[in-house]
Amino acid sequence: METVAVEVSRRETVVEASRAKEGGEGNTDGHATEVDRTGCTSPLRPLSGLPPGTVAIVESVHGARDLRRRLLEMGFCNRTMVTAIRRAPLGDPIEFFLRGYYVSLRTEEARCVLVSPIPPVSEEERSNPSGLRLRK
């Protein structure tokens, strides 16, 4: 039962965040400061706003049913880690890395995935190219 409660509260935050996004966001997607500018204090931001090279954790997926299903099925679930790689030369779509493979999403689709960014990696981690941290 406790787990359910945790889930519910997490989802509510998400809904708030997405409402704030809808209200305050123009076509400024792709800028790192987007979520902050809307005045939302939640650390969640759309995947489309993740600067290339940064890592984030998938928190929730929204959007039309089929799109949402396919995003989940492609592995955007269970708090998985996603790295933004690059935007296509014409600005769209965006390439991501998750679960050991590369996938590209259009900006409007990446907007459906809400993530919480991971703080920048330390020197020790950067020296470890696999990106995995040894347990102490």
Binding site: M81, R99, G100, G131, L132, R133
Partner: peptide, 26 residues
């Protein structure tokens, strides 16, 4: 044995101290 900083934080989940998905592109 390796594990992720995220996994440690995620207490709602059964802990599996094993290999994790690679999250940084090789």
């Amino acid at each position: 044995v390796v594990e992720s900083p995220v996994r440690q934080a995620d207490e709602a989940r059964v802990h599996q101290p094993t290999v994790l998905p690679i999250f940084r592109p090789p």
